[in-house]
Amino acid sequence: MSGAPFVVGFDLDMTLVDSRRGIVECMQRVLSARGVTARDEQLWPLIGAPLEANLGGFLPAEQVRGAADDYRAVYLQHAVRLTTALPGAVELVELIHADGGRVLVVSAKAPAAVHAVLEHVGLRPDVVVGAVFAEDKAVPLRAHDARMYVGDHQGDMYAARAASAYAVGVTTGPHDEAMLRKAGADAVVPDLVALGERLNEFERAASTG
Rank of each mutant, 00 (worst) to 15 (best):
V168F: 07
P190L: 03
G184D: 08
T172G: 05
V139W: 09
H175N: 14
A165G: 01
A116D: 03
N200S: 14
V117M: 07
V188R: 10
G130C: 07
V193S: 03
S164K: 15
H144L: 01
L104H: 11
G130K: 03
H175Y: 15
D186N: 15
R147C: 00
R102S: 00
Y166S: 04
R181F: 01
Y158D: 10
R161C: 02
D156W: 10
V189A: 05
A167I: 03
V139K: 09
P190I: 00
D145R: 15
P140G: 01
A187C: 07
V117G: 05
V114E: 04
V103S: 07
V103G: 12
F133R: 02
D191W: 14
G196Y: 05
R198Q: 15
V168W: 10
L195N: 02
V150G: 01
A112M: 13
A162G: 13
P111R: 09
P140N: 06
P190G: 02
V193L: 12
L199A: 12
V117Y: 09
D126N: 11
H175D: 10
V139H: 06
K182P: 00
S164H: 15
L180S: 04
G151Y: 11
L141W: 09
V188F: 04
E119C: 01
H120G: 00
A167W: 09
S164R: 15
L180M: 06
R124L: 00
A116S: 06
D145G: 12
M148W: 12
S107W: 14
Y158E: 13
K182N: 03
L104G: 10
V106Q: 09
G196D: 05
V189C: 02
Y158N: 01
D152W: 13
H144G: 05
A113W: 11
V168I: 14
V170F: 13
V132H: 07
K137E: 01
D156G: 01
G101Y: 12
G173I: 12
A159G: 07
A178P: 10
V114F: 13
Y166P: 08
H153C: 05
V103Y: 10
A134K: 09
